[in-house]
Amino acid sequence: SRHTFEINGERWTVEGVSEELKEILRAAERASNDEAERLLRLALKLI
């Protein structure tokens, strides 16, 4: 499935992501810059 999210003013669209990964991306959208970066690094390990 496709998911579009915005982090630090940048929009991203990813396809074929699991519900778990979507949850991480949604958390990154709400997080501070440092926390968002940490969550994105974690998410990339899952891809």
Results as ranks from 00 to 15, higher is better:
Arg38Trp: 09
Arg2Gly: 10
Asn8Met: 11
Ser18Val: 04
Glu19Asp: 13
Gly16Asn: 15
Val17Gln: 04
Ala28Ser: 03
Ala28Ile: 06
Asn8Ala: 08
Arg38Cys: 12
Leu40Asn: 01
Glu20Asn: 08
Leu21Phe: 06
Leu40Val: 06
Thr4Asn: 08
Glu19Gln: 09
Ile7Glu: 02
Glu29Met: 05
Arg30Asp: 08
Val14Trp: 05
Ala28Leu: 10
Glu37Ile: 11
Ile24Arg: 01
Ala31Met: 05
Arg38Val: 11
Ala31Lys: 03
Phe5Arg: 02
Arg11Gly: 04
Thr4Ser: 12
Glu35Ala: 06
Asn8Gly: 05
Val14Ala: 05
Ile7Met: 02
Ser1Leu: 13
Ala27Arg: 12
Trp12Met: 05
Ile24Asn: 00
Asp34Cys: 11
Glu6Ser: 03
Trp12Leu: 08
Glu15Pro: 04
Lys45Leu: 14
Glu37Tyr: 09
Arg11Pro: 07
Ser18Ile: 04
Ser1Thr: 14
Leu46Trp: 07
Ala27Asn: 09
Arg2Gln: 12
Arg11Val: 15
Ala36Gly: 05
Asn8Leu: 14
Lys22Val: 15
Glu10Asn: 07
Leu39Gly: 00
Arg41Ala: 13
Val17Cys: 15
Ile7Leu: 03
Gly16Tyr: 12
Thr4Val: 14
Ala43Asp: 00
Ser18Gln: 04
Leu42Phe: 08
Leu21His: 04
Ser32His: 11
Val17Leu: 10
Glu19Tyr: 05
Thr4Ala: 06
Arg38Glu: 10
Leu21Trp: 04
Thr13Met: 07
Arg30Gln: 12
Leu25Asn: 00
His3Phe: 15
Glu35Asn: 04
Ile47Arg: 02
Arg41Ile: 12
His3Gln: 11
Gly16Phe: 12
Trp12Thr: 02
Asn33Tyr: 15
Ile24Gln: 01
Ile47Lys: 02
Ala27Tyr: 05
Ala31Asp: 02
Gly9Arg: 00
Arg30Phe: 09
Glu6Cys: 15
His3Thr: 09
Arg11Lys: 15
Leu40Ser: 01
Val17Phe: 07
Glu35Gln: 06
Glu19Ser: 07
Ile24Leu: 13
Leu21Asp: 00
Trp12Cys: 05
Asp34Gln: 12
Arg30Pro: 02
Lys45Ile: 13
Thr13Arg: 03
Lys22His: 14
Trp12Ile: 15
Ser32Met: 08
Val14Asn: 01
Arg26Tyr: 08
Trp12His: 05
Ile7Tyr: 04
Ser32Pro: 15
Thr13Asp: 07
Arg38Gly: 05
Leu39Tyr: 04
Ile24Lys: 01
Ser18Glu: 04
Ile7Phe: 04
Ile47Gly: 03
Leu21Glu: 02
Glu19Asn: 08
Ala43Glu: 01
Ala28Phe: 06
Glu35Arg: 04
Ala28Trp: 08
Lys45Asp: 15
Thr4Arg: 04
Glu6Asp: 07
Ser1Phe: 08
Thr4Pro: 03
Arg11Trp: 14
Arg2Asn: 12
Ala27Asp: 07
Leu44Cys: 13
Leu46Ala: 06
Arg26Gln: 11
Glu6Thr: 10
Thr4Leu: 06
Ser32Asp: 13
Leu25His: 00
Arg30Asn: 12
Glu15His: 11
Glu35Gly: 03
Leu46Lys: 07
Ile24Trp: 03
Ile7Asp: 02
Asn33Gly: 15
Ser32Glu: 13
Ser32Val: 09
Phe5Asn: 02
Lys45Ala: 14
Arg38Leu: 09
Thr13Ser: 07
Ile24Asp: 00
Ala36Pro: 01
Trp12Val: 11
Leu39Asn: 00
Glu19Phe: 06
Asn8Tyr: 05
Thr13Tyr: 12
Ala36Glu: 02
Ile47Met: 13
Glu37Thr: 12
Ala31Pro: 01
Glu15Ala: 08
Leu46Ser: 05
Arg41Gln: 13
Ser32Thr: 13
His3Leu: 15
Leu46Glu: 06
Ala43Val: 14
Arg41Asp: 12
Arg38Gln: 09
Leu40Ile: 07
Asn8Asp: 11
Leu21Thr: 11
Arg41Lys: 14
Leu42His: 08
Asn33Phe: 15
Glu15Cys: 15
Ile7Lys: 02
Leu39Ala: 01
Ala31His: 04
Leu42Cys: 10
Phe5Gln: 03
Val14Ile: 12
Glu6Gly: 00
Thr13Phe: 10
Ser1Asn: 14
Thr13Ala: 05
Ile7Pro: 02
Ser32Leu: 08
Ile7Val: 07
Asp34Arg: 09
Ile24Gly: 00
Arg38Ser: 07
Arg41Cys: 14
Leu39Pro: 00
Ile47Asn: 03
Ile47Pro: 01
Arg11Asp: 05
His3Arg: 03
Asn8Ser: 04
His3Tyr: 12
Ile47Trp: 05
Leu40Cys: 06
Ala31Leu: 07
Glu35Ser: 04
Ser18Tyr: 04
Leu40His: 03
Ala28Thr: 02
Val14Met: 08
Leu40Gly: 01
Arg11Phe: 15
Lys22Gly: 09
Glu19Leu: 06
Ile47Glu: 01
Ile7Arg: 01
Gly9Gln: 01
Ser1Pro: 11
Glu20Lys: 08
Ser32Gly: 12
Asn8Val: 03
Ala36Ser: 06
